[in-house]
Design a protein around this nucleic acid. Structure first.
Lengths: 240, 240
DNA sequence: CGACTTCTGTGACGGTTTTCACAAATCGTC
DNA sequence: GACGATTTGTGAAAACCGTCACAGAAGTCG
């Protein structure tokens, strides 16, 4: 598929959010939604949503809005999640095993069907219905099952080696949880999920922006803002 | 501290990467590095790095480069990670317990000193040196310990409720791992870490860009590119 | 059917981010 | 100390991104 216009990378990054919101609306039985309402729900402006979608086609009906089912389906197709993806996970330490057990991936169509580690004590064990395999078997197994997406959850030191192995095994896309930069050849897509980075940005905020804001507030330069009626927080126990 | 010029949000987002690279260089005994070399290491352009740093001051020496120790120290101060932060974690399920055990946070100065859940079977248990506490004790404990950063690792359904509680408890910054949008009042910083989103972006790539590239390649429109001599991947077993 | 409301898709605009290019400062060497 | 090589910091330009505003299509209602 090639699209109407140049596709903004930033727009693609927002599609998963739209997709999830539409899923929820659909489950609730909502049939039609305007860009205004959807924007309210996902936290982006209505114009943003319309512009994002316009990269890929025209999905709305003037004077009405978007048919939830149709838009949901369209975005799924654009993202390529109107199918299941088999995923290989490398590293069965703390993070790796949590990712394996994390239900969010499967809910969005990503099935971890192979897990590799080098800890001989773990090899052969069955976790979450997947048998832990030795790293040396990785290339063969990945090719065998035609897996295209790999998740790296090994220590930073060996992340590059694992990435190289994944590429040699024929992997086309990598999600890297190791706090290390890795390099992959052209044609392989790489994305970093650095868990600490976001905490560090929060630390920046607390150290700088928040201090500035507080200062300004004390000088009366920042409007008070409405007092934000806090939500009900009873009954949170039963449903998680 | 208030800075030389308007600070680009995008620059702040890159500082953690620079920081980590400088740590590593320092550990290796490197004393001086140019923006060019650092750029090579972290994967950004030299100009990008110089521009980013210029928001905060002048740290380099013309004709020489940057003193690794000095720059490392300076960035730590800017980010506010030249100290330890106490962090509260809410949710001790799969993801929560992995985050608790994840060594990367502590390495960067973030200590999870309180964990809350609502599963009565878990309350009172000691994990990773932290005693699991009932969610109802959260406001009190957070105030008591003056915790400013909270991590949400609960199911999407209750994420907003937990966020509200955190805000009421006096939390100033939240890192949300739940796949749900949450809203917080002004003055509280919120960051989302959605694990599935990145996989979905990879799926987009595999479904669209990769296909286009392949097509182009077949028509001979894309240059072959150097054949990327693959790294040695022996001996990966001993060090992780 | 006509008047009024609603809502999309998009061109135009302004803001932010990245890249480019270079003056000026410093280093190394002879 | 002079000269060529190196490297920073920064304006200017380019690319990218988000918001605004509106024409025109469709819906609503009497």
């Amino acid at each position: 598929m090639s699209w109407k216009k140049r596709v903004a990378e930033a727009a693609v990054a927002r599609l998963p959010t739209y997709s999830r919101a539409l899923d929820e609306l659909d489950r609730k039985g909502v049939e039609i939604i305007s860009s205004d309402e959807l924007g309210e729900k996902v936290g982006y402006s209505a114009a943003q949503i319309r512009k994002d979608l316009s990269c890929f086609g025209e999905f709305g009906k003037v004077g009405t809005g978007y048919y939830v089912k149709d838009l949901k389906e369209a975005i799924s197709q654009i993202l390529g999640i109107d199918r299941a993806w088999n995923v290989a996970l490398v590293g069965a330490g703390n993070l790796g095993s949590a990712l394996l057990a994390y239900p969010g991936f499967r809910e969005r169509g990503f099935r971890i069907v192979a897990v590799f580690d080098n800890d001989l004590r773990k090899i052969g064990k069955k976790w979450e219905n997947v048998i832990l395999q030795d790293i040396s078997e990785m290339p063969e197994k990945i090719k065998e099952q035609g897996i295209q997406i790999g998740i790296i959850a090994v220590p930073a030191k060996v992340a590059q080696q694992i990435a190289d192995m994944l590429v040699l095994s024929g992997i086309r896309a990598i999600l890297n949880f190791a706090p290390a930069r890795i390099v992959v050849p052209d044609g392989v897509e790489l994305r970093a999920a650095d868990l600490s980075r976001e905490l560090e940005r929060l630390s920046y905020f607390l150290t700088n922006e928040a201090a500035i804001r507080t200062e300004a507030l004390q000088k009366g330069k920042v409007a008070g803002g409405e007092e934000d009626k806090t939500r009900e927080s009873h009954h949170y126990r039963q449903d998680w």
